[in-house]
């Protein structure tokens, strides 16, 4: 398992800060808080998850209270408040995907990776979870992998096995 100290200080790369500077320009003067969601995505893409230190840093950057970042990060489902595997397989578990076999597929992923939902594999490479409707109902079952949120559609057990093998080799 990964071991991460919650209070471990974090550094943002200069590329990340440049990206944040660019995002803030999209909103009127004084409305920089609008940049919060996009910036949290950028931070998570760089660090893998949102630690308290990372969120505090975002609050300082946007000149808002720490709690304003925590309440947003905990409200939305895409932000990880705990360390995850390098690849998080997010499988749609909502109605239309279940009509075409999503539940069976999640069982298969659990067996294949050998970890329960939201747990990380020994090697730190994978975790998986069921997520709600991903708006790809006609191509189910589907799963996505961040931070690019690449989509994998019309899945079956064999395709998932191949995908996991490909990611292992990366």
């Amino acid at each position: 398992m990964l071991k991460v100290e919650e209070t471990q200080p974090v550094e943002f790369s200069s590329a990340l800060i440049a990206k944040c500077d660019e995002i803030v320009k999209r909103y009127p003067e004084g409305k920089q808080k609008s940049a919060l969601l996009p910036i949290l995505h950028e931070v998570q893409a760089e660090l893998g998850w949102l630690s308290t230190s990372a969120m505090d840093k975002v609050a300082a950057y946007l000149d808002i209270q720490d709690i304003e970042v925590y309440e947003v990060a905990s409200f939305y489902s895409m932000y990880f408040l705990k360390p995850q595997g390098k690849y998080v397989l997010e499988v749609c578990r909502t109605g239309p995907c279940c009509l075409v076999g999503a539940e069976k597929l999640m069982g298969h992923i659990e067996e294949k990776l050998g970890v329960k939902e939201n747990q990380v594999t020994e090697d730190g490479l994978f975790s998986w979870r069921g997520v709600e409707c991903l708006a790809a109902c006609g191509y189910g079952p589907v799963l996505q992998i961040g931070p690019e949120y690449t989509f994998y559609e019309n899945l079956n057990e064999q395709k998932v096995d191949e995908l996991i093998e490909d990611l292992r080799k990366k």
Binding site: R26, L37, P38, H41, Y76, M78, Y79, E132
Partner: peptide, 10 residues
């Protein structure tokens, strides 16, 4: 014109 990402919430 700008694109704003959400955070995952129906």
């Amino acid at each position: 014109l700008y694109v704003q990402p959400g955070g995952g919430a129906y």
